[in-house]
Design a protein around this nucleic acid. Structure first.
Lengths: 204, 204, 204, 204
DNA sequence: CATGAATGAGCCTTCATTCAT
DNA sequence: TATGAATGAAGGCTCATTCAT
């Protein structure tokens, strides 16, 4: 009896996932506005009513998607901050943090991220969980930069806050480039290269 | 009487502009897909048929907008390249070029640019006139960086090509940030600051 | 309870029929091009969306109608060919075949047939299922005429093929007349009279 | 001064003809309902306002066309009746009349005639000038048949009225066939053959 | 949970016609 | 006569959502 209930729930969860996955797929291919609930349920091989059993609206599927995205990044940032090596050079830590960010991005997948960016610019700040969320990213950077300054590894005439902001903007900017130039643009290499330039400067 | 000959055409041009301006306004406020032709003509105080006298479709208004945008940037880049001072320091020239770019952006207006970015990410590279166009921007950067290297002002262990690419990506990335953070994000200050960091490096 | 399983589907079928019937009615009264989907759904007392649940387009309803028409005639021709009396005079068989055709036409209804003719001439041979279909009619005639010739009942200086073609053309021509002169033109009487003239000749 | 006025009128007449001809062309290619005034004026290289200078409406052009058609047939029938040879065999006269009809049809042109038939079945007897007009055709036939009967050339057990009606129906029916089977269907041959069958009968 | 028929507001576009120039 | 910008009603079709089964 217990098993049956659980199997029912599993069935339901599978149906939901089928809808979710196919929806994301289509949103990415054609853009959110150009995908109808009809086309989602057709691709997912579910009835139209079934869609509304699992999602309150077409928008709801988007919200869920953004949450996934944010949660995964959140976890990634936090786990880095907790496990950062104590003794390494600050710039090396920064580089490996940037590497981890790109790794996470690539795990989340170009599709989801591009969709997030698209939504982000489509909807006017209405849903700024993404933007606000990156304060976590900002916080990690800020901590690292202050550490670098106080250890004498980074210039002490710089405001850690300003530099952190620049870093976040750079990450977001390069990710945007990745989205519009996929797959020819290598996110990891370019970001790493950019941070190396930022560390050393290009002036002789 | 002779002058009057164009009064009808002028009237028509004004009508077109009224439609165009109001359309851009609405596209930015609500997103292209969420703006109906009905709402455009209502705001522009023109009849629905009137819209189609001046634009072949709702899409056509977008194409016209992108062309405006590209043409203005084009002119800006070219005029800078032609008038660059011969004797100034390369980094100063770069900074003043970046300044001119932001000035141009601000003249074009946040609205138009955000719309362009939105379209850019919404439509899957279908219309990459924007992307390809920025090769002009890339070219100006490349020339300047080579000049800096050969004059001994910039590090000679850097590939001018790579650095130019980074610069273009940075410009685009910061502009994206400007779009999603408007009006709190100051494009000019942030870009200038970023290039200064890039010039000097943040390492001690 | 078991029987009820189809109640939803039966309801749907009824809705579809309501739409179909009213559409045909209106098409005939005002012409296909002059009937809007709005007017159909209003007359059928169905929502606009409902129309598109049952028909993919306004055109689809026409296709369905033509198919109905062709299928019914098809059945009629075939059943005649199978049940033709073996021993009767050929001209009598021909006359009774012509009678059966007009009976079928009248069962199908002036409305549907006129609509079919209208579509036929409106669309430039694009949909010639009707035209090609009448080859079945032609075949029945051909068989009968050959029989008549070989039995010595009909002139043996005539090509059965040519005469069959003439017959089909006559049927179609008189039906056209029926359509444009309805209801004053009696299809059955006129066709029968014409075939009698054709059999005997009008010359003394 | 007199010449100038006339040249103006000629200019106007030419413009009108240009519109008329191109309209007929398009009506035939795409069907009356599918041809817009816009497309007419574009093809005719006339301004939109110009169209309404010469025709009160889109429909007016149709009326004018039907009138042309009817007038030409009218003239043809009358001229035949006036010049019919006194001494020839009635059936020969009938055949040569049928020939003249098809000649006239071919001079008028398949396009115009098909259009007339189309209009005829599209509009519900609203404009039956065509139908009523063919009473002239009927009259010629009636006279000839009565002549044949009284001369002992045709069966005297036939009603001249009935036979005339059959003839007119046949003409119209074969012309319809010509319209929907153009150009593979040879109107003249088929009509001639049919009348020959009607004269002699197909019975042995 | 699942189904799919039904809803009706909304969308983009077309078009015959008018009228000031 | 000729022009073409302007009009606004109408058309075919889409779509997110609801709800009885």
């Amino acid at each position: 009896m217990e098993m049956k209930k659980s199997s029912r729930k599993m069935q339901a969860a599978e149906t939901k996932k089928k809808i979710y996955d196919n929806a994301i797929l289509l949103f990415n291919k054609y853009g959110f506005e150009n995908v109808s609930v009809d086309s989602i349920v057709e691709k997912a091989e579910v009835s139209k009513g079934g869609f509304y059993v699992h999602f309150a609206s077409k928008d709801a599927i988007l919200t869920e998607m953004i949450n996934d995205y944010v949660n995964r990044l959140d976890f990634s940032y936090k786990s880095f901050a907790e496990n950062a090596p104590e003794d390494a050079k600050t710039t090396d830590i920064l580089l490996s943090f940037v590497d981890q960010i790109t790794d996470t991005m690539e795990k989340i997948g170009y599709n989801l991220i591009k969709l997030a960016y698209r939504i982000h610019i489509e909807r006017n700040n209405e849903n700024d969980s993404l933007l606000s969320y990156d304060r976590e990213l900002y916080r990690v950077f800020n901590t690292l930069i202050q550490r670098g300054i106080s250890r004498g590894e980074l210039r002490n005439d710089l405001s850690a806050e300003m530099v952190s902001n620049q870093f976040v903007t750079v990450i977001r900017g390069f990710t945007y480039e990745w989205c519009i130039r996929y797959p020819e643009f290598n996110l990891k290499d370019n970001l790493r290269r950019h941070f190396e330039l930022l560390f050393a400067g290009i002036r002789r």
